[in-house]
Design a protein around this nucleic acid. Structure first.
Length: 590
DNA sequence: GGAAGGTGCGCG
DNA sequence: AAAGCGCGCACCTTCC
């Protein structure tokens, strides 16, 4: 990890922290704010009406940009954004608790583990305006969700976390990780508030072109009906349901198509007149059920798709999403992502993030050399390690996922000769996992311990009376877990890089001028929507929605943020993070 | 009639 | 062309 990282990143993630921390807590309709100095000593306490919180936060933010310490970003920040108030930094106690409780870099996590109330799921936001269907959730309004909301609980947990970090020999990494995770919590709330510009008419046009006109409720669209007819005719089975896997499978067998499943790849291996229309049927059925007119009605309001992002929702630290399938928007619908009039989208994705991160972690200069420039896979071909770009890609993915058979498994050994350090890192992670141990990302997120079931299966297999089946199962589970831990270190560190990238970019966008120069007067609603702002994030890709006049400047900022994230994690180690950046009206890949 | 599990497929 | 990580979601079937 780098020390003395460059200024913008340092501002965004600022491991040392600002001079003031303000811990917020709630009691009924009163909010208590406790000012702490840089040594966490209490300086003052303020009690105010919850209704006045946004105004008060705005004033403190403007005066000194403190780090706000709160239980759970969605429980605090959504309302601030609604009131037009944005903050630069926070410390999200719930998310940081989850990291520190399990981190192998924390020497003594007993106090954190004992504070079970902080293991709570996130506060559930009321989302009626966005997605009425979610309102069906069986929520008891008297049963508050989320972690403790009182100020004393927050102060106690904050003290536990500061102690845990301070006592760690890797305190700087943990400070960076908790700051990055907390920045992600802010960004997720802002992404939801801003929304992704979505052109419902363009979406409808795509659906109509592929499926036929929107049918009346309950009927399949024209094109789907026609394909189903063709499949049934070719199978000689006029009544078969194509949506029931067991029934379809039996019908395929009766027609002499001896597949074991109905998945597309297996079907494609067979020649039969029923196959092409069936594959097309499944493709369109998927489009309609996952992102059809129902989805459009439910999730797109006033030209914005507002997904619910879940920072830290994946064990590796990646974000998950809940509702709307935000992270699975099919490429075929990207043409519906469309900037507002006079605005543009800056769409940026990192080329081969995970192998680059691996090179950085392992300090593998040979892999870093191959990665120099735009295309890491081409670099591997140029090094004479494999013949084609496709082989390079399969081999590298196989190395990070733990492939043992097929083309991928065959090619992996070549990488082992050429990139011994990188391969040793993932191979070691796999061995630790097979053995029941835990592994840790670059900044300190640690994989979960194996389950009780896993441990007892391993123990049982070593006993004298263990059956062959016991041993086979134990071996299989051990290898499964090895592949998980092998991938964990890479996927998790890539997620950390992406958080650093996002946080840094957010800071750069915030410092850009409003169109026309003067900052608009405060008004209701998120004011940041009136200057360049993040609109979408997907593991290694961001979309910024920007006034057209700022698009070039944004494109530069996105690049600089990537370089800055690389330095923040890997210091002077020479690993590039090149981006593919497009400036366009739509997010469509052209 | 709802929960749980299986299947398949969209994304990285 | 296809076996190797992480997800969420829709639908169907099975079981209580």
């Amino acid at each position: 990890m780098a020390d003395g990282a460059d200024a913008p990143a340092a501002r965004a993630l600022d491991p040392a922290g600002p001079p003031t921390w303000i811990v917020l807590g709630r009691t009924g309709d009163r909010v208590v704010a406790v000012d702490l100095d840089a040594h966490a000593a209490e300086r003052s306490r303020t009690t105010l009406d919850a209704a006045r919180l946004a105004e008060w936060v705005a004033a403190r933010e403007k005066a000194e940009a403190p780090r706000w310490v709160w239980s759970d970003a969605p429980a605090w920040y959504a309302a601030l954004l609604d009131a037009g108030v944005r903050v630069a930094r926070c410390h999200d106690l719930r998310l940081c608790h989850a990291i520190l409780r399990d981190s192998a870099l924390v020497t003594d996590a007993a106090a954190l583990r004992a504070a079970r109330e902080w293991d709570a799921a996130t506060h559930v936001e009321p989302v009626a305006a966005v997605a009425p269907a979610l309102f069906d959730l069986d929520l008891d309004p008297d049963e508050p969700s989320g972690p403790p909301s009182g100020v004393d609980a927050a102060l106690a947990e904050f003290a536990r976390q500061r102690d845990a970090i301070g006592a760690s020999p890797h305190a700087q990494r943990l400070r960076l990780l908790t700051a990055a995770e907390s920045a992600g919590a802010l960004i997720a709330a802002e992404l939801r508030a801003a929304g992704l510009p979505w052109d419902a008419a363009a979406h409808d046009a795509i659906l109509t072109a592929r499926l036929g006109a929107r049918p009346v409720a309950g009927r399949p669209p024209e094109r789907l009906e026609e394909l189903a007819r063709q499949v049934r005719e070719a199978l000689g089975d006029p009544a078969v349901s194509l949506d029931s896997q067991p029934k379809l499978l039996r019908s395929l067998h009766r027609a002499g198509i001896l597949v074991e499943s109905t998945n597309r790849w297996e079907l494609a291996e067979h020649e039969h007149p029923a196959i092409p229309p069936l594959i097309e049927y499944k493709r369109l059925w998927r489009l309609m059920t996952a992102n059809g007119w129902t989805w459009l009605d439910e999730w797109v309001r006033a030209g914005r798709f507002r997904p619910v992002y879940v920072p830290g929702g994946v064990v590796t630290g990646r974000w998950a999403s809940s509702g709307g399938g935000a992270l699975q928007v099919p490429r075929s619908l990207r043409a519906a992502v469309r900037a507002d009039p006079g605005w543009l989208l800056v769409v940026a994705d990192v080329a081969q993030l995970e192998p680059r991160v691996l090179a950085g972690m392992a300090a593998d200069t040979a892999l870093a050399d191959a990665a120099r420039g735009r295309d890491l896979y081409a670099g591997i071909v140029a090094g004479g390690i494999v013949e084609t770009r496709q082989e390079a890609k399969i081999a590298l993915l196989g190395a990070m996922y733990g492939a043992t058979t097929g083309d991928s498994g065959r090619l992996v050994p070549r990488l082992r000769r050429s990139f011994p350090r990188a391969m040793a890192l993932v191979d070691d992670a796999a061995l630790v996992g097979e053995d029941g141990g835990v592994v840790t990302t670059w900044l300190g997120r640690t994989s979960p311990s194996p389950s009780q079931g896993w441990q007892s299966a391993q123990a049982q297999a070593t006993e004298a009376e263990a059956s062959g089946a016991d041993e086979t199962r134990a071996r299989r589970w051990a290898r499964d877990r090895g592949r998980f831990t092998r991938n964990f270190v890479v996927q998790g560190t890539a997620a950390e890089w992406a958080l650093a990238w996002l946080a840094d970019l957010r800071g750069r966008l915030e410092r850009m001028p409003f169109p026309g120069g003067a900052e608009p007067a405060p008004r209701s609603g998120p004011v940041f929507q009136r200057r360049p702002h993040l609109a979408f994030f997907l593991h290694d890709e961001v979309i910024v929605h920007t006034p057209a006049e700022s698009a070039d400047e944004v494109a530069v900022a996105v690049q600089e943020a990537a370089a800055s994230a690389g330095r923040l994690l890997f210091g002077g180690f020479p690993i590039d993070f090149p981006l593919e950046v497009r400036i366009a009206h739509t997010a469509d890949k052209t």
